[in-house]
Amino acid sequence: MSDGVAAVSKFLTWSVVDGPGNRFVLFLQGCNYRCVTCHNPHTIGVCSDCGACVAVCPSGALTKDGRKVVHDPGPCISCDSCLSACPTRANPMVRRMTVGDVLDLLRRNAPFLNGLTVSGGEATLHLDFLIDLFTAIKAAPDLAHLTLFIDSNGNLPAEGWQRVLPVTDGVMLDIKAFDPERHRRLTGADNDLSLASAKLLADAGKLYELRFLLIPGETDHPEEIAALSDLVHELGPDTRLRLNAFQHHGVRGPAATWAPMPRAGVEAAAGVLKASGLAEVVLPSVWLP
């Protein structure tokens, strides 16, 4: 899908929660999971130019040019009405960026950065772009100090990882659930590729962090926690594990009425995991009231 261009949902020049140090984060559009608990659901779909968003845009930033939906950032007031109106969970404000565009942005902010993290959507859907971008950064003397990370759901076959890992410094991998039926219900996909990716990345020494989202009544079950513990032991008990707590921010659909994950529940799960011998269990750094 590359030809050196990717659909970028957003970028940040300051992020302290996407890997070590301050990171430039590039959020690419499109995902191969359909998580009911997704807190960025507008990054899932790809725009079909249906025009439903044009009708609700209050500022005139969205128009139709022939068959295409066009977004003009000038008059846009960032009200996000278009995101709620989109039937495909896409984002008409997505911009197309070349590898060169991203290099320019990185150069402008390089003194403040420890690295780049590409997230999504699902970053690995844009594998050729990732490889082109990372290769170009590694080849640029003024950017070579940046560490290059991918934030992924792991739904990528081994052949894909083999291609991108030589230019990647680390991967943050989300495991959504262990029970196959639960995983399908929560994400619309199987988890076999994801689990295989965890092992592959750990063997390659590129698994920076394993992430697990605790959802009350779903992934906080004792059997899920036990399976998580088993997996981390298999990957190496020193693997850094981050527990996230399900919250309502951004969530659309039925999961918006589910209970958020309480702090006590996260701490209880962390207690069980640490007692099983895991070295590094990281909890959310801020608890939302």
Partner: peptide, 14 residues
Amino acid sequence: PRVVGLELMAGSGV
């Protein structure tokens, strides 16, 4: 403070 802990806020305004 800017909310950056929420990973990604909706919209493209950067």
